[in-house]
């Protein structure tokens, strides 16, 4: 499908893409550092992925194959909307198969399948500033990042342990990048944190409302923050997937009837379907 004539390729004008690409390059050059950019008005409101969409628009080329997932699923309303948006405005090929995609836009999950050196993962980010909830002043948080004053970040983790006996942060778990910047990896479950480090693909993070872009170039050192006596654990539910039987993927918990019966299914729909097609079956598979 060629894109509609009344839109520039991928919706944004070339000058805007240039500005966003410059921000992306800066972000890749300083891993984990939040680069301010002039976020544009997009045809969806703030809070619906405008940051991710702008980054995707800036990096897409006509030869790319595009995949969109929303909490792991290709078929939610918003994933479908964004995929259709780029079909119409860029005319690029789209797919639900992770290994066939060259650009993957994601909301709140990293695909189970390892990504490779030709792929770009674009994250949708609501609040880019990891310190925001402890220090509301932007002037202060900028200083803290520039002076590497991250004591406050550990205060948050300390508070968790004192209140819950363990670090209760289960998503958007803060990480330290290349031993320098503390970064919010977007609201991915902490189960996904280990995948951030040493990934072969390029990772780009876009926050449209907050107007920040940051990035992790391939094979970057990323460590989740913790205490010596409370080390980081990438925990998940103690169940295999009901459909494909996988024991090492992140699961969604579904309540299936009024009696409260529950089923655990891989959140990454492509991963689950691929496994089922290969013959793996979980106990709840039909």
């Amino acid at each position: 499908m060629t894109h509609q004539d009344n839109y520039n390729f991928a919706y944004l004008d070339e000058q805007t893409k240039r500005m966003i690409r410059r921000a992306i390059l800066k972000g890749l050059a300083i891993p984990g550092y939040q680069v301010p950019f002039a976020s544009r008005e997009m045809p969806m409101p703030y809070g619906w992925g405008t940051g991710g969409v702008q980054v995707s628009a800036a990096v897409l080329t006509p030869e790319d194959t595009f995949k969109v997932i929303d909490q792991g699923a290709d078929d939610t309303t918003n994933a479908v909307s964004i995929r259709t948006f780029f079909q119409r405005t860029a005319g690029v090929a789209t797919t639900t198969a992770t290994q066939d995609a060259t650009v993957i836009q994601t909301r709140h999950r990293i695909p189970e399948e390892s990504l490779g050196e030709g792929q770009i993962l674009v994250y949708q980010v609501p609040i880019p500033e990891p310190l925001r909830f402890l220090e509301p002043r932007e002037s202060e948080t900028r200083k803290m990042h520039s002076l590497e004053e991250y004591g406050l970040m550990h205060v948050k983790l300390y508070e968790d342990i004192s209140r819950h006996g363990h670090i209760a942060t289960s998503y958007a778990y803060p990480v330290k990048v290349e031993g320098r910047y503390v970064m919010d990896p977007s609201p991915i479950p902490k189960f996904d944190n280990p995948k951030l480090g040493d990934m072969a693909a390029i990772q780009l993070f876009g926050a449209g409302r907050e107007q920040r872009i940051y990035a992790l170039p391939p094979y970057t050192n990323v460590i989740s923050l913790d205490f010596e006596d409370h080390p980081f654990e990438a925990s998940k539910a103690n169940h295999p997937c009901g459909m494909c039987g996988s024991t090492d993927s992140y699961l969604d918990e579904l309540i299936v009837d009024d009696a409260g019966r529950r089923m655990f299914i891989c959140s990454d729909t492509d991963y689950c379907e691929t496994r089922q097609a290969a013959g793996h079956k979980g106990k709840d598979a039909a």
Binding site: G151, L152, V155, F227, D229
Partner: peptide, 14 residues
């Protein structure tokens, strides 16, 4: 009270 300690890279919760 612990913030200053954490700001000076103390990393043992106990």
């Amino acid at each position: 009270v612990g913030e200053r300690l954490m700001a000076l890279d103390e990393r043992h919760y106990g």
